[in-house]
C-alpha cells in the first residue's frame, strides 16, 4: 500500500477551515438566539463539506452542502420560525452543576478521545483512494457501484426508513378537523355578534378585560399597569368581563383561559384561538 503524502495545499485548507468550523460550532453552542445558532451551524457544515471534497469525497461534499446545509438547516429555520424565534434562551442554568459538569466532562472527553486518536493514528499510513477512483472511475461511480451491490439491502432499508419518517412527520403534525368545520367569515362574524360581544377575545396569555386601547391592563394584584396606559387617552374602565373569583374557580392556568370565555359551549365560533395557533 503506497503512502500518500498530504500536500501543502490541503494543509493550508485545513488550517484555514478548521478554525472556522470550530468557531462555528462554538458560536452555535454559545449564541443565545436560536437563529444565530443555526447560522453558525451552517458555517461549520460548509467547512466540513469542503473537507469532504478535499479528502477525495466530492460527492459527499456536494451532498453535505445541498442536503445538510440546504435542506435540513432550512427545515430547522422553518421550525424555528413556527415555534417563535424571539424566545431567546435564558442564561440562567436551572439544573444545579449541569453547566460545570458538562464543561468538565466535555474537556475530559475531548482530551481523552483526542489523545487516544492522536496516539493511535500518528503513524497511520494513508492509502489514498487513487486505487478505487480517479482515472477511469469517478467518485460517484465508485460509490454507486458499492451502494447498489454490497450495500443494496441497507440502501433499500434506508429508503423505507425515509418513507416511514415522512409519514411519521405527517401523522405527528396533522391536526384532525371535521369536514365542514371550517366556517366562512360571514358565519363567524354572525356568531360573534350573537354573543352580544362584538370584540374578539384577547390573545392567549393576556390578562385583559377589554381590548380597547382606552382600558389599561391590570397587574396580577388588580392594580392598573401604568405601562399599559395609552398615550393621549385618559384611562377608563370599559365593560368589565367576568373575573375568576379565586383559585378554585381559576384552577389550572389552562382552565383559566377557558373560564374567561363568557359562553364557551354554545358559541364555538367565538373561540378562534385554535385557528391562530
Amino acid at each position: 500500500m503506497n503512502d500518500v503524502v498530504i500536500g501543502t495545499g490541503e494543509a493550508v485548507v485545513f488550517w484555514v477551515l478548521g478554525p472556522i468550523s470550530l468557531a462555528g460550532a462554538l458560536g452555535m453552542v454559545l449564541s443565545r438566539n436560536a437563529v444565530h445558532s443555526a447560522l453558525w451551524l451552517i458555517n461549520t457544515m460548509l467547512a466540513l463539506g469542503v473537507f469532504y471534497v478535499v479528502q477525495e469525497a466530492p460527492f459527499l461534499g456536494a451532498v453535505q452542502i445541498i442536503v445538510y446545509t440546504g435542506a435540513i438547516m432550512i427545515l430547522f429555520l422553518f421550525v424555528l420560525m413556527l415555534v417563535g424565534r424571539d424566545s431567546s434562551d435564558s442564561v440562567v442554568e436551572t439544573l444545579r452543576g449541569q453547566r460545570v459538569a458538562a464543561i468538565v466532562l466535555g474537556l475530559g472527553f475531548a482530551g481523552l478521545v483526542g489523545a487516544g486518536i492522536a496516539r493511535a493514528t500518528q503513524d497511520l499510513p494513508v492509502a489514498g483512494l487513487a486505487a478505487v477512483q480517479g482515472a477511469e472511475t469517478s467518485n460517484i461511480e465508485a460509490i454507486a457501484g458499492l451502494l447498489y451491490s454490497r450495500y443494496l439491502l441497507a440502501f433499500e432499508v434506508t429508503g423505507a426508513l425515509l418513507i416511514t419518517a415522512a409519514v411519521g412527520a405527517l401523522v405527528l403534525t396533522h391536526v384532525e378537523r371535521e369536514a365542514g368545520e371550517r366556517r366562512t367569515q360571514k358565519e363567524l362574524s354572525r356568531a360573534r355578534f350573537l354573543t352580544g360581544r362584538a370584540q374578539t377575545l384577547p390573545g392567549p396569555g393576556v390578562y385583559a378585560r377589554a381590548n380597547s386601547v382606552a382600558a389599561p391592563g391590570l397587574l396580577p394584584d388588580g392594580r392598573l399597569a401604568e405601562d399599559s396606559f395609552a398615550t393621549g387617552i385618559e384611562p377608563q374602565e370599559v365593560e368589565q368581563m367576568p373575573r375568576p373569583a379565586g383559585r378554585a374557580q381559576l384552577g389550572s392556568p389552562d382552565a383559566a383561559l377557558g373560564t374567561l370565555d363568557p359562553a364557551p359551549s354554545d358559541v364555538p365560533g367565538g373561540r378562534e384561538g385554535g385557528d391562530h395557533r
Partner: peptide
C-alpha cells in the same frame, strides 16, 4: 450528562 460521563469513563 450521565451518558457523557459514562462515555468519558469508557474512553
Amino acid at each position: 450528562l450521565s451518558m457523557l460521563g459514562g462515555a468519558v469513563v469508557v474512553a
